Simulated assay, not measured.
Amino acid sequence: MFYHLLYPLSEWISFFNLFKYITFRMIYGSITAFLLVYFFMPSFIKYMRLKQFGQIVREEGPTHHQVKTGTPTMGGVIIIFSITASVLLWCNLTNPFVWLALFALIGFGGIGFLDDYLKLKKGKNLGLKAREKLLYQLILSGIFYILLFQVLGFSSTLNLPFLKRLVLDLGIFYLVFATVVLVGSSNAVNLTDGLDGLAIVPFAVSAGVYTVFAYASGHIKFANYLFIPYIPFAGELAIVCAILGGAGLGFLWYNSHPAEVFMGDVGSLSLGGVMGAIAVMVKQEFLLLLTGAVFVMEALSVMLQVGYFKLTGGKRIFKMAPLHHHFELLGWKENKVVVRFWIISVICGLLALSTLKIR
């Protein structure tokens, strides 16, 4: 909105020329998202406490987590609101990538909202059935694919980190691959969101990494120099990524230990979904495995645990899955698990950035 309302005024007042620049709008979009979460979240927490809409902790988890029962949940509603408002204020709204990012954010958030609502309504940690949730995610991913590839004519090629000249064209099979990226990313963030502040910092790190890649991908000189795909108009996604990071930091203000609010599935599914969508739109899908390594480890731990349990008739690889619970049962304090996972996330984020030159 600011881009459309204020940038045209630069013809008479040079100051408004600032609104042309992506970097300027990245910074202030991020700050706007942070402030919106910061100022609106206390009222949301108060409302959720008044209505007694609190987290329902699963009984099979670590016993010390039972004290978190009743903590206000669904803080992702404020995250989504803040991100959407900031994007509408600071992005070029004629850019289709911006709207596709919002589609993924709100769409996956809608699935999470329904899941959270059913849990609160039933008073149990039972929302949507796994197959129902997966079906909705697959439908949403299919719509995203149609909009991106069929309507906009997006490329079905695949680029690999560290390799500058190897490009694979998956053709129609890219539909399956893109779906795996979106659904996998959404569910991985959801599985990670089990400790205070655990998921939001790795998400903010991933958003920061994709801010750089989106900006470089939308700049033809940078893209050619760095041997990454040039994607016209993808630069606006750098603003979206910066806004995602700002909203994440705003949420961390209230989600740090001891958490005053949880994001709920409405938050984790939406944030994971939009990050997967951005990875697809900037043609850096495999990079998500590196910059989101914490999410990958958490998701893999669940898949390995379930698979091994079924194959061996009840044996386990980990004391408990997802992985963060395993370390808790080894005797690590919650804060130690969280901070160490943050450290891993930052290191992996730096490694992801290094792929810009190691090609």
Rank of each mutant, 00 (worst) to 15 (best):
195 L>M: 09
168 L>V: 06
142 G>H: 06
227 F>L: 10
164 K>F: 02
189 V>C: 04
136 Y>G: 10
252 L>V: 01
223 A>N: 10
210 Y>D: 13
231 I>P: 06
191 L>D: 12
136 Y>A: 14
161 P>E: 07
206 S>D: 06
252 L>C: 01
204 A>Y: 09
165 R>T: 01
179 T>C: 06
206 S>N: 11
227 F>S: 05
184 G>Y: 12
172 I>T: 08
161 P>H: 07
161 P>L: 05
209 V>W: 08
142 G>V: 09
185 S>Q: 05
196 D>M: 05
208 G>Q: 08
167 V>N: 01
156 S>L: 00
176 V>D: 00
239 I>K: 01
134 L>D: 06
187 N>S: 09
148 L>P: 14
225 Y>C: 03
213 F>V: 02
218 G>V: 01
149 F>P: 03
152 L>I: 00
211 T>A: 10
197 G>A: 05
174 Y>M: 14
150 Q>L: 11
217 S>P: 11
194 G>R: 09
130 A>V: 12
231 I>Q: 07
210 Y>F: 15
228 I>G: 00
177 F>I: 01
190 N>I: 02
214 A>E: 13
216 A>I: 00
183 V>N: 07
171 G>I: 00
146 I>F: 15
236 E>G: 07
150 Q>W: 14
131 R>M: 13
247 A>Y: 09
214 A>T: 03
145 Y>P: 05
221 K>L: 14
218 G>F: 13
245 G>R: 05
258 P>W: 15
228 I>H: 07
183 V>C: 05
159 N>L: 07
214 A>Q: 06
147 L>P: 14
141 S>M: 12
247 A>I: 04
179 T>Y: 05
256 S>F: 15
150 Q>C: 07
138 L>I: 15
209 V>M: 02
190 N>Y: 09
158 L>Y: 13
247 A>V: 02
171 G>N: 05
241 C>D: 13
243 I>R: 02
182 L>M: 15
245 G>T: 03
203 F>A: 04
231 I>C: 03
207 A>T: 03
259 A>M: 03
153 G>F: 03
161 P>D: 04
206 S>H: 04
225 Y>G: 00
259 A>N: 09
222 F>Y: 14
225 Y>D: 04
134 L>F: 15
141 S>H: 11
138 L>W: 13
247 A>P: 11
241 C>N: 14
224 N>K: 12
196 D>C: 07
227 F>Q: 06
188 A>Y: 11
257 H>P: 04
162 F>K: 03
214 A>V: 00
196 D>E: 08
133 K>N: 06
201 V>M: 11
203 F>P: 05
180 V>H: 07
240 V>C: 08
159 N>G: 02
248 G>F: 11
171 G>W: 10
205 V>T: 08
